[in-house]
């Protein structure tokens, strides 16, 4: 199958190449001999990539710290289930799905990907694969940041950095819908987009300072561009 692969961490996205990789074997997946419990084979229709992936150890080594290159990046997916392993109750062959896949396994910039069933949700027939793939990472990141970790309540104020970006625009919309007061930040050129996504105020980081904002209940910063060591188990 065709896939994008990376082999050199120092090269960044410039090191991506289109290559031929072995296709995951559906028969092996579905047999007890080769059982990978909980895995399904997904025919990839649309894939999303988070640039920070290439700085995370999960792209380069497995959970034992062993080199796993060539590695297929891109861990956001929308596609169709083509084979089921054991322990995949709830999904069926031919079903449209979308989700976020394990960072430590080969990803979805490929014609096929093996994904744990629990990482996938049904993609309704009226939602395009391109949209499905675009929702997984921004949607889950915003949801978990706002509601699980931030415990956002209606009536609270939230500062969303990069409010017109992929994650920020999702956080802005979900926070507004939850009844929060949203202050977005970004470059001056992003002002109108942030307001269109629902931000009630916008702080232009080229000209304004955050000190002008005053106190907020929650501040949301998405991953892009930060220097963290990335996903851990």
């Amino acid at each position: 199958m065709k896939a994008i692969v990376v082999t050199d961490q120092a090269a960044g996205t410039a090191g991506m190449t289109l290559a031929e990789r072995p296709e995951p074997q559906a028969a092996r997946l579905a047999s007890l001999a080769g059982a990978s419990y909980g895995d399904v084979l997904v025919e990839v229709h649309a894939s999303g990539f988070t640039p920070d992936e290439l700085t995370w150890p999960s792209t380069w080594t497995d959970r034992l710290g062993r080199d796993r290159t060539p590695s297929i990046p891109g861990h956001e997916v929308a596609g169709v289930v083509r084979a089921l392993g054991y322990g995949t109750t709830g999904l069926s062959v031919g079903q449209r799905v979308f989700g976020l896949t394990d960072w430590t396994r080969d990803g979805t910039l490929a014609e096929y990907a093996v994904v744990e069933a629990r990482n996938l949700a049904p993609l309704p027939g009226d939602v395009d694969f391109t949209v499905g793939a675009s929702l997984a990472m921004p949607g889950l990141t915003a949801w978990q940041g706002l509601f699980e970790h931030g415990r956002l309540q209606a009536g609270q104020s939230v500062l969303v950095h990069g409010a017109a970006g992929a994650v920020g625009s999702m956080a802005t919309q979900l926070a507004r819908e939850a009844g929060a007061y949203v202050i977005g930040t970004g470059r001056a050129a992003a002002r109108q987009a942030a307001l269109d996504f629902g931000a009630q105020e916008f702080v232009d980081l080229d000209d304004d300072t955050l000190e002008d904002v005053g106190e907020v209940d929650l501040s949301s910063t998405s991953s892009a561009g930060t220097s963290g060591d990335g996903p851990r188990d």
Partner: peptide
């Protein structure tokens, strides 16, 4: 916005 690769 998000870059999406349409594989099929």
């Amino acid at each position: 916005g998000k870059t999406i690769i349409r594989v099929r």
